[in-house]
Structures are given as structure tokens and as C-alpha cells.
Nucleic acid binder design. Structure first.
Length: 870
RNA sequence: GCGGCUGUGGCGGAAUGGUAGACGCGGCGGAUUCAAAAUCCGCUCCUGGUGACAGGGUGGGGGUUCAAGUCCCUUCAGCCGUACCA
């Protein structure tokens, strides 16, 4: 008996699959109708960082199981792979190591492709794409120009993080505590003119269509729902008053500040107006008010990330201006500039009602503003009324009746809102309005390594699209990363061109697209990867939507929402006719590993340490090591395991099996050495089963005289087929693996010398090979081969089970007395409830607990449980 | 801050509202071996008991139900996202 030689087996079958083109997807052909139903499996394509990591191994193993399973079930499967090849890391490599981003990227792709191929993934490599090639990105230049024609793209000013030392725009992740990550200089907010895609046009559609995404995880649907953030409220105008104490007031008197609120019912409780630091009025005031200017500068240091803005201490600046209360005659409210008001949401201005909004209350407390309750809580004691109800340090946001609110008194919150709409509308100072949290998608990036935006700026003609015959606009190769700023803007000649309209000297747009642009349509390119227009409507119509999309939950909102929008936008401009790109979605958890630190707190690689009894020590010099928390694998904490090392040591099948074994796919998992060993041990075990020469030859038939134990094994096989089929359909791969363990235990414990054993074991091992094939395809093919087949499992149908054989005749069920388990009894399956009840009551344990009394009630759940209520 | 998720033996996890802990890891005991590795068999939630068995148990607190890991309320801890990382 030869031993299980994973590297040799894996290489052999990978070559076989390739030679026989097992995984080439059939393009639909109208002259030869394809009777197989299509199935599109897609994993989120990787950024080519240079080496695959365990997150990739997990992601692509999950996808490969689905692809192989569906192919075995008779689907025409499309399972492609490519490279999300534009992005910041390539530019960082260029700056740090002097290597060209393109060269770096191409080398990384080559290395990672080899690594992926060693995993035995069933990709149709003919469809491979890399987004950094003009062959790919030229299509998005045309898409963008069509969006522009259709009014789906436009230009406006927006804020960026500016590093004054590096002269570059920083990504949010490059801003650490308000400073540039490389320069350490405090960042400034700067306004730049940038391109936007009008995703908000589809806000309602994108929101409503979430209901139809029934094969998406609920949490992702909820996150998208909340991200779009539809809220219905009112827009209210507050007019600035004359104020004798304020010399500037005349400049502003009579002008309106537009406020959006979801709580117009609390208008009587308003005690101030707060506007964003970058609100037009605030910026105007800052031009002549040093205090306002200083405050704006302070706010600008927070950078542009929402988390930074929202977690900052609530601060404000009193402008000295007042506005008239729109409902209370003669009342005025002070106008503050506040750091917690966002210009991007609503109108960039709010009215503060401290009694019923915690943030407003914190602000009012800090700045000595009045707190007037206008909602009396539903559950307030009778002794509390409008006069005595007070708010101290907790705002009340629940339901109740309006108080201190003039003619609205006594209404509930909902009726109060309606009353407010009526009052405001008749006074002409406000109306009902719906706003969305979702903002238009800013696609301009001040970077080199991205798709050039095909626009020419002409002093006379403005922003002019690059004519079709001049597309694609290609990136220049000769760029310099040694000087600060955007290399595309620094390039001596690339940006200079002539205006396509008037012919005068003009400048190219020097920004490139956000890399989410590429990932918003790559799934369409795969449908027809050589097509001159990016893809054909026919191919897209056939393959789309993606039946099963798999990737990290970190993309739950942005990438998925942008892709949903992009598919709609492309349909609007005539590329195809489809709204939703992803019919099914599975979001995988992270791969984690224990962390290790030496006595100086330096992070250590798992390969640097070893166990010494209950402790950990360094391999090199036995120094003691602190074993820390189990965290997401990351380079910075060095708690990484290299997939190539694992595949080299144990084989791809072992790595794949361990990925699928213990944790459910959507949950975080911990990579452990012992887990890998366990997976490896299991594969060696099933290998020995297939290599056993006491099993029957192919085509052997179970003898009529077969022992009942042999028949039980056959039954177990049928049960296992049913269970694993369901488990794979439901993405419960860890359970499928457990079923495989149970089956292999049943095979190995069946005595070899009883009647029917040899035949039953052949039947079981053949099915074991077929069932494990999607998970560990190489060893499955080899076992199939060892069992005497000259076909390939890659071309073999999924096994089917006979439910009648799988069904048990008897069931063992629990008997409870008052909800506590007291006995178990065996009953014929589906026996009448009366029989079940009689047998339960007859059991010793039950009569002991009943103490001769008759039960009050007996609940019989057929084949499940019996509960006797005493 | 806001939005989302997760929490079950020593560990990863299993459990259509119906016998909590399948399966694996680790551990303990045994077989095999000159010995070891590998392999095979048995035991393994906690407490008490020789045992049959009894009691407790799904982050904490409360509730609904004949029955709650599962549903509801509340609270704590950790993780993900937060619009220029991908």
C-alpha cells in the first residue's frame, strides 16, 4: 500500500483538469441551445498584494465547494477569477522601494496566480482579467462618459484630507489622530472640485429592492437599509433677525437658515440653531469673525472621517446671530456653529431640542442653553405634569404626549408631527421632506495608479469629454514618485493636450477613478471577457445575476451598494437590462490566530515560537513568550500563517478541509496547528479506506444474505448523501465535514468478514469520494481512481439517495415531566399520539414522578418529545 | 458617536421553540511496538454518589411558554463598518 502523497496527487489532478478543460464555462450559443441551467459562482477578486493569505484561502475554498457541487448537480457553471489591480499599495511600494506600480502589480499577479493554482480551484482561467490593463479600464472610461451624458455624473466641490508636507490628498486610513501617517503633519480639510456619480437618484430603488434580495444575509440587508437611511421629516426655514447688539446682523437679517428635522413635533422645545462648520453661512461669517474662523480651523483638523467627527467632544461657537422661532411669536434662538453637525446630511443645519435629543442636551448643558421638555413620557407617573416634568442629564426620546407646545398640547408624537406640517405649511415656513443619509459617490482620486478620468479641461469650453476615437486615455509609464504630489499631475507632458472642441491648448483631467469603480462591474466583464464593448448584453443576460457571491463582510455596504447602483446605471445607459447583480450573497468571517510577543513586547511569528509544557518559548533561544489574544491575522501583529507553507507541508486538500471543518463560514475562525493536523489525519484515514484490498470489486452487488450491520452502513450512506446535499446547499460546510467523519467512522468500524461487508464498504467509500470531492477534490479523484474508475469526479454526477432507505423505522424520544427530561423511550416512527402517550406514562421514571396522580396534561410532539405536565 | 454582528464544555463548534454538547481538537486509560511515531479501542460539561441516580448548566439580570441556547426586554464584553484601505 502506497502512502498518501499529497503533492504528487495534487499536481497530477490539477494537470488532468487543465488538460481536459473541465472548468471551461460554455458560452451560450443560440444555434446549439444549452439545456443545462446556468450557475454563476463568484468570489470577490483579490487585490494583488503579492502573496495569498489565509483569508483568500478561505474565500476561494468556499467558492470552489459551491462551484464543484453545482457542476456535479448538472449546472453550466461560470467560476472566474481576476485581479482588482489598481490601488494605493502599489503607489506605496513605488515610494518606499522605487519600483514602478505597474511592474510591482504584474509581478504580484504572477506570484499569486501560481499560489491560487496550487489550491486546485475550479476556475475558468480563460476569463482572467486585471483591472489595471487598458483592455479593462478603457470600458469604464466609456461608461463614465455615458453616465455624464445621462446626467448620472457631475462635478462639484468636496472636502479632502490634505497633507501640507507631502502635498497630497490622504485617504482616511492614512490620517492617524488628525496627522498624516508619513509626514506627521496635522491634516487640513481642503475643498477640491471632483466628479460624482448620482447614486442618490436610485436611493429609493436601492432601498426598496433590498426586500427582494432574499438570499442575502439579513444583517447585510439591514446595514444597507440603514446606510441609505431614508428619513421622513420637515424642512423648516428659520429667518435671521435684526439684532441691535450685533453690528453684523444687518448683513444677515432676513436671510433664512434651512433646517432639516425628523422631529418637527418638538419645535416648541427648540433652544438653539446649530450649523456645520463648513455651512455656507459659517464660512461667510468666518471671513470677518476671527473666532468663527479659528473654530472652523479647529473642526478642519478632525479630518473627514465620520467616526472622527462624531466621537470628538461636542463643541460650538456662538455666532451672536439670532433667528426667529417659526411658530412662537417673538421668540428668538441663538445660532451656533457646531462640530457635530454634518454638512453632508440634510441641510447642514439643525435646530437643537435638548430635552429630546441627547447630543443637543450635551451641547445645551455645555453652553448654558435652556432645556424645555415638550414631550411628557407615556409612562410618567400621574403626579408628574407639564409643569413639573424636567430633564436633567438624559434626554427623553420615547413616545408620549406633547406639552408646553401651544395648540399642539395633548397630541401624541405622530399627531404632533402632522400638526407641525400643517402649521408650518400654512405659515409658509416649512414643509414635509424626505432625506437620505446616502450621499452621491465621489469617484475622483488624486492618484496615479488608477483609471484616468477621460476629461479635458479647456479654459474656453470647460470640462470636455475625450472623444471616443481618442479613447482609451492611457496612464503614462514614465512617472516619478520621488517628488511630493500626484505623479500624474507632475508628469511634464502627459497632461498637456488640445481641446477637442475648440482646438486650443488644454489640460487633461489628472485625477483617476476610485478603485470601487473597477469592482462595480468586473462581474459583467467575466461574462464576456474579450468583448470590444466591455461585455455583450446577450452574455450578461445569460449569466447574470451572479447566483452566489462570496466575500468578506467588510464589503457589506460600500462595494455591494456601488455594484447595485452601477448595474442600474449601466442598464439606464443601455448596456444591459438588470437591476440586481447578486442574487445570492454569503459573507465569510475572518481567519484569526493567536498572537505572540517577546519580553520586549515585540510581535513574533507563529513559526518563531513553540510549546514548552503549558508555556510558549522562542524556537531560537528558548526565551519566554507571552501568548496573547486571538486576533484577525495581520502583518502588523505577525500572527500570520503562510498558505504556501501549509500547502507545501500538508497539501491543498488539507488546507481546504481545515478551512471548512470547524467554524461555520460566516463566523470568524481560528487557525490552529492541531486543527490542520486533524484535517490531515482524516484525509490519511479515508485514503487507507480506499486502499483497503478487502473491499469488493466495482459493480459488486450486495448479497441477499448481507448482515444487518452491512445493511446499516448502506442506510448510513443514504442518510449522509441527504444530509450533506442539504448542508452544502445551506453553506453549512462544517456540518458536512462532521457527516463525512461519521460516515468514515461507520465504514472503518464495520467488520470486514461479515456477509455483505465488502460490498457495503465499496458502496460507502465510492459515495464518500463523491461527497468529499467538492471539498477536497484531489484526494477524491485519486480515491475514485484507486477504486477502479477511469472517469473523473470532476465530470461525475452528484450522488442521489433513496429517502425510503435512509428513513429509520424507530425513533428514540425523550419524555419530560414538567419540562425536565426523565426518560427516553423507543417508538415506531410516526406512531399514533395515543400510543406514544400510553408508552410514556407507562415508563417507570414517569410513574415515579407522578406519584400515582394522573397528569394534568400530556403534550406529544410526534417523533420529537413527550412532555407530561403533572 | 452611529449602524451591524458575536457570546454554549479545557478549546473550535452542534442543536425546524422539543432529549444541550453531534463531529473534531485536547486530555486520561488501554491495545500494538524492543522502544517510539503512526494506528486502533474506551472514557471525557460541572458538582455529589461505588452505582442506579440527583442537582446545576448556553456572558449577566428579567419575561413569554407545557417546553427557551433559540422568542421578547435589559445589561456587559469583544469584533466589523463608518463613505479616499481593499
Amino acid at each position: 500500500m502506497t502512502h498518501y502523497d499529497a503533492p504528487a496527487i495534487e499536481k497530477k489532478w490539477q494537470r488532468c483538469w487543465q488538460d481536459k478543460e473541465c472548468f471551461t464555462a460554455d458560452q451560450p450559443d443560440s444555434s446549439a441551445p444549452n439545456h443545462k441551467p446556468k450557475y454563476y459562482v463568484l468570489e470577490m477578486f483579490p487585490y494583488p498584494s503579492g502573496r495569498i493569505h489565509m483569508g483568500h484561502v478561505r474565500n476561494y475554498t468556499l467558492g470552489d465547494v459551491v462551484a464543484r457541487f453545482r457542476r456535479a448537480q448538472g449546472f453550466n457553471v461560470l467560476h472566474p477569477m481576476g485581479w482588482d489591480a489598481f490601488g494605493l499599495p502599489a503607489e506605496n511600494a513605488a515610494m518606499e522601494r522605487g519600483i514602478h506600480p505597474g511592474k510591482w502589480t504584474v509581478e504580484n499577479i504572477a506570484a499569486m496566480r501560481t499560489q491560487l493554482q496550487s489550491m486546485g480551484l475550479s476556475y475558468d482561467w480563460n476569463r482572467e482579467l486585471a483591472t489595471c490593463t487598458p483592455d479593462y479600464y478603457q470600458h469604464e472610461q466609456r461608461m463614465f462618459l455615458k453616465f455624464l451624458d445621462a446626467g448620472l455624473a457631475y462635478r462639484k466641490e468636496s472636502w479632502v484630507n490634505w497633507d501640507p508636507v507631502e502635498n497630497t490628498v490622504l485617504a482616511n486610513e492614512q490620517v492617524v489622530d488628525g496627522r498624516g501617517w508619513r509626514s506627521g503633519a496635522p491634516v487640513e480639510r481642503r475643498l477640491l472640485s471632483q466628479w460624482f456619480l448620482r447614486i442618490t437618484k436610485y436611493a429609493d430603488h436601492l432601498l426598496a429592492a433590498i426586500d427582494g434580495l432574499d438570499r442575502w444575509p439579513d444583517r447585510v440587508r439591514l446595514m444597507q437599509h440603514n446606510w441609505i437611511g431614508k428619513s421622513e421629516g420637515a424642512r423648516i426655514s428659520f429667518h435671521i433677525t435684526d439684532n441691535p447688539d450685533q453690528t453684523d446682523a444687518d448683513t444677515y437679517a432676513g436671510r433664512a437658515i434651512e433646517v432639516f428635522t425628523t422631529r418637527p413635533d418638538t419645535l416648541y422645545g427648540a433652544s438653539f440653531i446649530a450649523i456645520a462648520a463648513n455651512h455656507p453661512l459659517a464660512r461667510e461669517i468666518a471671513t470677518h469673525d476671527k473666532g468663527a474662523a479659528d473654530f472652523a480651523a479647529e473642526c478642519a483638523q478632525l479630518g473627514t472621517s465620520e467616526a472622527a467627527v462624531e466621537t470628538a467632544d461636542k463643541k460650538g461657537y456662538d455666532t451672536g446671530l439670532f433667528v426667529a422661532h417659526p411658530v412662537i411669536d417673538g421668540a428668538t434662538l441663538p445660532v451656533h456653529i457646531a462640530n457635530f453637525v454634518l454638512m453632508d446630511y440634510g441641510t447642514g443645519a439643525i435646530f437643537g431640542c435638548p430635552a429630546h435629543d441627547q447630543r443637543d442636551l450635551d451641547f445645551a448643558t455645555a453652553y448654558g442653553l435652556p432645556v424645555l421638555p415638550v414631550i411628557l413620557p407615556e409612562d410618567a407617573p400621574d403626579t408628574v405634569d407639564a409643569g413639573s416634568f424636567t430633564i436633567t442629564d438624559t434626554a427623553y426620546t420615547g413616545p408620549g404626549k406633547l406639552i408646553n407646545s401651544g395648540e399642539w398640547d395633548g397630541l401624541d408624537v405622530e399627531a404632533g408631527k402632522q400638526a407641525a406640517f400643517t402649521t408650518l405649511a400654512s405659515a409658509g415656513t416649512g414643509q414635509a421632506e424626505t432625506t437620505f443619509r446616502l450621499r452621491d459617490w465621489g469617484v475622483s482620486r488624486q492618484r496615479y495608479w488608477g483609471c484616468p478620468i477621460p476629461i479635458i479641461h479647456c479654459d474656453s469650453c470647460g470640462a470636455v469629454p475625450v472623444p471616443d476615437d481618442q479613447l482609451p486615455v492611457q496612464l503614462p509609464e514614465d512617472v516619478d514618485f520621488t517628488q511630493p504630489g500626484n505623479p500624474l499631475a507632475n508628469h511634464p507632458s502627459w497632461k498637456h493636450t488640445n481641446c477637442p472642441t475648440c482646438g486650443k491648448a488644454a489640460m487633461r483631467e489628472q485625477d483617476t477613478f476610485d478603485t470601487f469603480f473597477e469592482s462595480s462591474w468586473y462581474f459583467l466583464r467575466y461574462c464576456d471577457p474579450k468583448h470590444k464593448n466591455g461585455f455583450s448584453a446577450e452574455a450578461a443576460q445569460y449569466w447574470m445575476p451572479v447566483d452566489q457571491y462570496i466575500g468578506g463582510v467588510e464589503h457589506a455596504v460600500l462595494h455591494l451598494l456601488y455594484s447595485r447602483f452601477f448595474t442600474r446605471a449601466l442598464s439606464e445607459v443601455g448596456y444591459l437590462d438588470l437591476a440586481e447583480p447578486f442574487a445570492g450573497l454569503m459573507t465569510q468571517g475572518m481567519v484569526c490566530h493567536q498572537t505572540f510577543q517577546d519580553k520586549d513586547g515585540k510581535w513574533l511569528f507563529p513559526t518563531d515560537v513553540e510549546r514548552d509544557g503549558d508555556n510558549w518559548v522562542t524556537r531560537s533561544d528558548n526565551a519566554s513568550v507571552t501568548a496573547g489574544r486571538i486576533e484577525k491575522m495581520s502583518k502588523s501583529k505577525r500572527n500570520v500563517v503562510d498558505p504556501e507553507l501549509i500547502i507545501g507541508t500538508y497539501g491543498a486538500d488539507t488546507a481546504r478541509l481545515f478551512m471548512l471543518s470547524d467554524s461555520p463560514p460566516e463566523r470568524d475562525m481560528e487557525w490552529t496547528e492541531s486543527g490542520v493536523e486533524g484535517a490531515s489525519r482524516f484525509l490519511k484515514k479515508i485514503w487507507r479506506l480506499a486502499a483497503d484490498d478487502t473491499i469488493a470489486p466495482p459493480d459488486a452487488v450486495m448479497p441477499d444474505t448481507a448482515d444487518s450491520a452491512a445493511q446499516d452502513l448502506v442506510k448510513t450512506v443514504h442518510k449522509t448523501i441527504l444530509a450533506i446535499t442539504k448542508d452544502i446547499e445551506d453553506f453549512r460546510f462544517n456540518r458536512a465535514v462532521a457527516q463525512l467523519h461519521t460516515l468514515s467512522n461507520a465504514i472503518s468500524t464495520l467488520a470486514p468478514d461479515i456477509a455483505g461487508s465488502a460490498e457495503a464498504r465499496r458502496f460507502a467509500i465510492e459515495n464518500l469520494a463523491m461527497l468529499i470531492a467538492p471539498l477536497t477534490p484531489h484526494i477524491a479523484e485519486e480515491m475514485w481512481h484507486m477504486l477502479g474508475h477511469d472517469t473523473m469526479l470532476a465530470n461525475t454526477d452528484w450522488p442521489t439517495a433513496d429517502p425510503a432507505v435512509a428513513a429509520d423505522d424507530e425513533v428514540e424520544i425523550g419524555v419530560q415531566v414538567n419540562g425536565k427530561l426523565r426518560a427516553t423511550i423507543t417508538l415506531p416512527r410516526d406512531c399514533p399520539n395515543e400510543d406514544a402517550e400510553a408508552k410514556a406514562l407507562a415508563s417507570d421514571a414517569v410513574s415515579r414522578y407522578l406519584e400515582g396522580k394522573s397528569p394534568k396534561r400530556v403534550i406529544v410532539v410526534p417523533n420529537r418529545i413527550i412532555n407530561v405536565v403533572a
